[in-house]
Design a protein around this nucleic acid. Structure first.
Length: 512
RNA sequence: GGCGGCGUAGCUCAGUGGUAGAGCAGGGGAAUCAUAAUCCCUUGGUCGGAGGUUCAAAUCCUUCCGCCGCUACCA
């Protein structure tokens, strides 16, 4: 039976340019998608852009262009970044596409039909000049005791007609969801925060606006556009062809994993399941929130001018070194720091020294002493069996780690094995066996080739380009690179191409 | 203020009742196939402070100190 796996990134808000945080979530989702493909699952991997809302409208005005022209440009940039990072998305959805608009209106209609949406009025402190509402506690006192927005704009108490979603009615069902399915929401800290938030009491949610028009019209009431989160969250369904239950992709619902940044965990873990409950639609299996990146120890912000475009890093260090660094450095669900020093250290120690050099030393021994031909397997010694058993365990170990979104721990498992290979080659010393026992030397090298094939196969989701080249050098054919193929040893006698370095060491230019 | 998380070797972190761990960094040694990479051994911690429960606590409880997050519709 083929299992289906549906994984999503958030759809990124086109308010600003793509940065390392977006790239990180996308790369993590990409690893999940690629891993499941190699495991033989049928995969659908969705990413895209969130293009409605007042902020986008304002940004377009500020840029002096029509909203559509504005979002076309920024969405294209997000897509270009996904391509630059080698994100293997199956579809890229934009919330301004007709298919999304139709699906979102259908979802709204279904929720409304189940009596979970009603018309009332949204009240609050409104600043005409800023065209937005402020919370009571954000206001400051002006000279005449007048209330002012933090921007200094005068505010007035206004009522605006708005549709509301009966979020309050779903409190108990949401708490039951978190309780009965502890795996639904992670990591642990985020889960606690969300539960505590829901327990503190939910108010109904305003889900439409009349104060701007850059959004999806509410079905049957064109004066309103939908609140951006109703619009945005619906993308996970609209890309599947919702509401057409017969659409081929609808079989991927419910989603297996929504990967999100921790700032939007609440929208995915509270509002989204509530919308779906209201619509009578099955819930996603898991929402997992990742942390933030700091840059050289500092928070990333426009005002500090330290916003990192991952493409600049790729330019300098290479795509796979950057992908590897992001996945290796971030502790499970936590925040992480991006520093030049750390990136270079990971690249040089783990990629160049541990893995790249292992491949290079093994392959050049095969090239020189075995005529570049894959030796037959020989009788296995205890050490041989031990190493190969460790490799054989990797698919199972990584599968378990990815199940809990522990990408860092998954890589650690592989690196333990890589270190074991380096220990093995030193202890067996094939360069010495060359003179004393050439047959055993060939067997040792064969063990290493098999071990490296397993390692490279497992690392493909993390570093697709470089591991592809490593498998080329190991003589592994294109259809022999999935997890199931590992059961079948390569036939001996295959000719290998001349070895070439995989990961160059990075040497920082000396500052005088 | 309320709720929650974190505080373990120089650094990044793992470890939720049973004689303190990994990687990196530091020190010593071996090897020389290899991208001067690798391998072996090793220095180093009163597990934030104090008190308590227990035969036994980094691990449970109390309290204090420090850092961080959440506390809703502005992605």
């Amino acid at each position: 039976m083929t299992r289906r796996f549906y994984v999503t990134t958030p759809i990124y808000y086109v308010n600003g340019a793509p940065h390392i945080g977006h790239a990180y979530t996308s790369v993590a989702a990409d690893v999940m998608a690629r891993f499941h493909r190699l495991a033989g699952d049928e995969v659908f991997f969705l990413t895209g852009t969130d293009e409605h809302g007042q902020k986008v409208e304002q940004a377009a005005v500020a840029a002096g262009v029509a909203p559509k022209a504005f979002v076309d440009k920024v969405a294209a940039d997000f897509r270009a970044m996904a391509d630059a990072m080698d994100i293997s998305y199956d579809d890229f959805i934009r919330t301004t596409e007709p298919r999304h608009i139709a699906a979102t209106q259908a979802l709204w209609t279904r929720v409304a039909r189940n009596d979970a949406i009603y018309l009332d009025a949204y009240e609050g402190w409104y600043a005409l000049r800023d065209e937005c509402f402020y919370n009571e506690d954000e206001l400051v006192d002006g000279p005449n005791g007048q209330k002012l927005a933090p921007t200094g704009a005068p505010v007035e108490w206004v009522k605006e007609p708005s549709y509301f979603f009966r979020l309050s009615a779903f409190q108990d069902r949401l708490l039951a969801l978190y309780e009965q399915h502890p795996e639904f929401l992670g990591p642990y800290g985020t889960r606690n925060e969300i539960i505590s938030f829901v327990k503190s009491g939910l108010r109904d949610l305003s889900v439409s606006r009349t104060s701007f028009s850059w959004g999806i019209p509410v079905p049957g009431d064109d004066k309103h556009v939908m609140y951006v989160w109703f619009d945005a969250l619906a993308n996970y369904l609209s890309a599947l062809g919702f509401p057409d239950e017969q659409a081929p992709r609808m079989a991927f619902w419910p989603a297996n994993l929504h990967l999100v940044g921790k700032d939007i965990a609440r929208f995915h873990a509270v509002y989204w399941p509530a919308f779906l409950m209201a619509a009578g639609i099955e819930l996603p299996k898991k929402v997992f929130a990742n942390g933030w990146w700091t840059i050289e120890g500092q928070k990333m912000s426009k005002s500090l001018g330290n916003v990192v475009d991952p493409r600049a890093l790729v330019q300098e260090f290479g795509l796979d070194a950057v992908r590897f660094f992001m996945l290796r450095e971030v502790p499970f669900g936590g925040d992480s720091d991006l520093s030049r020093k750390a990136l270079i250290a990971r690249n040089n120690i783990e990629l160049a020294n541990d893995l790249g050099n292992l491949a290079q030393r093994t392959l050049s021994l095969v090239a020189r002493n075995c005529g570049g031909i894959v030796p037959e397997r020989g009788p296995a010694t205890e050490e041989d069996s031990k190493l190969l058993a460790q490799v054989a365990l990797l698919p199972e170990l990584l599968s378990a780690q990815l199940e809990r979104c522990a990408l860092t721990d998954a890589l650690e498992e592989v690196w333990k094995t890589i270190r074991a290979c380096n220990a093995y080659i030193d202890h067996q010393a094939p360069w010495a066996l060359r003179k004393t026992d050439p047959e055993r030397m060939a067997h040792v090298l064969r063990v290493l080739l098999d071990a490296m094939r397993g390692i490279a196969t497992m690392l493909q989701p993390f570093m697709p380009g470089t591991m592809g080249r490593m498998l080329d050098q190991l003589g592994v054919a294109a259809d022999e690179r999935n997890f199931a193929a590992l059961e079948q040893p390569l036939p001996g006698g295959r000719a290998l191409p001349p070895p070439q370095g995989l990961f160059p060491r990075y040497v920082e230019a000396e500052a005088e």
